[in-house]
Each structure stands twice: as structure tokens, then as C-alpha cells.
Computed example of a mutant assay.
Amino acid sequence: MTNISVLVSGRGTNLQSIIDAIESGGIAGAKITAVISDKKDAYALTRAENHKIPGIFADPKSFSSRQAYDDHLLSILQENKTDLVLLAGYLRIISDSLIAAYENRMINIHPSLLPSFRGLHAQQQAVEYGVKFSGCTVHFVEPALDGGPVILQKVVPVLDGDTEETLAARILVEENKAYPEAVKLFVEGKLKVDGRIVTILE
């Protein structure tokens, strides 16, 4: 059984897609053991409660530094015997030591075709740049912002007249497909990482 902990900050739509995939049997051999939020009012915590998953609010203001906060997160992850950490709309920069503790076992999803448009407001960046295609990227987490080996990408067209909001909505549909797909591959042991290259094994 793969124990999954999910770090969240917001509404938790990607969290919901993974919960649904596990509950439907689309992802077998995995369970979410904790949903951890840095925001007390994150709707993702309500989603966890609705599915009887332990939800934890870890208040960054209670800690003197990012490192101290992430040390606390690490202790929570270890207490929950976490095998895989998922970032699902988690908006804090993660310390190198926490990333190292879960090397090739921490996954993020980003609303662009990395390495294009890293950081915040990736959809707005894509619209302003004038690209014809954007999408989402599921990747392993490394210290470089929105870096790390790419697991999966999904592509959507950027349409004439798109705004940040309309493009984000179209990308989110693909995010909700891509993230469970990537988690399933991890749980089934089908991801081989060699430097920057992720091979999906048959």
C-alpha cells in the first residue's frame, strides 16, 4: 500500500481528482493518509473531511523560519508513514531538505508546458506571450522552481480572445486527468528516473 500525503493551499480540485480515482479503483494500492494545508480556510480541508481523510492545518506563522516550518511538515509526513508527497495547489516554496527527504517521491502539477512559464500566473504569462498552445505538466520536485523531471504533459490550445481565467479553466480539465494518471504510474512502479529523463515502463 502506497501512503500518500497531499500538501494544499486552496480549493483542492486536483486533490479531489485523486481522491475520486482512488475511491473508484482507478488507482489501486494507494490511500491518502493526510491532507496538510498552510491555510486554515482552504476548501481542500473540507474535501478531506468529506471523505474521512485526516486534514491538518499547519500554521506557518507559528514557526520562526521556512526551514522550521518544513521540519514540522517532515515530522507530520513521517508520522503518517508517507511514501509519496503530492503538491496540489500548494503555494509555498519548499526547503531543499524536505525535497531531499522525498527525492523522486514528491510530485507537483503546474499549469503550463514546462519549462515555459514557471512561477505564478502561468496562464496569464501564456496569454500575454501569445503562444498557440499551453497545458499542464506533472513533474518530480527539485529545488529549482517548477523544475524537476517531467512525468506527463497535457496540451490545450490557446484560443483567440482567451483570458487568464478562460485558459486556466481549460487547462484545469486536463490537470484533473493528468495528476491521477501520474500518481497511478508511480504507485504501480512504472516510473524510471534517469537524470532529467522519466521513462514510463510497460
Results as ranks from 00 to 15, higher is better:
P54Q: 14
E188V: 10
D83G: 13
A101S: 15
T13F: 06
A182L: 12
E103H: 14
R11M: 02
D194K: 14
I94W: 00
P157C: 11
L98N: 04
V127T: 10
G148W: 03
F133R: 00
I93W: 05
E128L: 12
A178H: 08
Y179T: 07
L201H: 00
I56C: 00
F133I: 14
G195D: 11
H72D: 11
P180K: 09
S134A: 12
T199I: 09
P180R: 11
L167A: 06
D70N: 06
V127Q: 01
S95F: 03
A34E: 03
E181Y: 09
V35Q: 07
R66L: 05
D38L: 05
E202K: 15
I18E: 05
A44T: 08
E175G: 06
D71A: 14
A101Y: 05
I99R: 01
A88E: 05
E175M: 09
K52C: 11
G148L: 02
D194H: 10
R105G: 01
L45Q: 03
F133K: 02
L84T: 07
V198K: 07
A126M: 11
V35I: 13
K52I: 00
P143R: 05
E103C: 04
L77K: 11
Q78S: 13
L91F: 10
D41L: 10
A101H: 04
N3R: 14
E23I: 04
V141E: 07
P115L: 09
L114E: 05
G135V: 06
D96T: 13
R105T: 03
G161W: 11
G55D: 11
L167R: 04
Q125L: 05
P111N: 04
I4N: 08
A101Q: 09
S24F: 00
A88W: 01
V85D: 02
Y43W: 11
R11W: 04
K40V: 08
V150C: 13
P143W: 06
I94Q: 08
N80D: 09
I107Y: 07
N3S: 14
Y43Q: 11
T46L: 12
K154V: 08
